[in-house]
């Protein structure tokens, strides 16, 4: 709780305390914690002097703002038409197999969450996905495995 308080205060200092700062603050929380907890929402409401319901309303509207805990790396596979035509389902199956989770779930080590998303604007290079903010295009099952390995390796190196 104290940590969240610090984080929100820091973000409010950085972005300001007007309504126009709300989305940047919520995005800042996502950058740090991958999700916006109820405590965080209450804290934001207090800092901006608005109702917690208003913060909740905004936080739950946007598909990139999550109010439930997610993994450190959020994988969003594009499911819109051209990516679907170019084999999005195969990519999802591969990710499910490699990560040993189903679509919508988070791995036990809380490293990866697998989600689908709407058009990523990479239609000429489908199938495409985002891992956090990083786009990956022209995916194949082999490529997907290599990408996941890269992130796992990165984690090992950090630890």
């Amino acid at each position: 709780m104290a940590e969240v308080k610090q984080l929100v205060k820091g973000l409010a200092d950085q972005h300001g305390r007007s309504m126009e700062s709300l989305l940047p603050i919520l995005q800042g929380i996502i950058n740090q914690e991958q999700h916006i907890s109820e405590d965080a929402m209450v804290e934001v409401a207090r800092e901006l002097n608005i109702s917690a319901a208003q913060v909740y309303g905004t936080a739950t509207f946007y598909s990139f703002l999550h109010t439930k805990p997610l993994g450190k790396y959020v994988i969003r596979v594009c499911k819109t038409i051209t990516c679907m035509m170019h084999g999005k389902n195969q990519i999802i199956q591969e990710l499910e197999a490699v990560l040993k989770i189903n679509l919508g779930e988070t791995t036990h080590d809380r490293l990866f969450t697998l989600l689908e998303t709407n058009c990523l604007g990479q239609c000429h290079k489908g199938p495409a996905m985002l891992v956090n903010d990083e786009p990956y295009t022209e995916l194949t099952p082999e490529k997907v495995r290599a990408i996941i390995m890269k992130y796992k390796q990165q984690e090992l190196n950090v630890n």
């Binding site: 700062s21 709300l22 946007y62």
Partner: peptide, 19 residues
């Protein structure tokens, strides 16, 4: 933050206003 509707200009303003 991932909302197609915000490409609609007045929704975009609302979004910038924190709503």
């Amino acid at each position: 933050s991932g909302a197609y509707i915000c490409g609609e200009e007045s929704a975009l303003f609302e979004s910038m206003e924190g709503k």
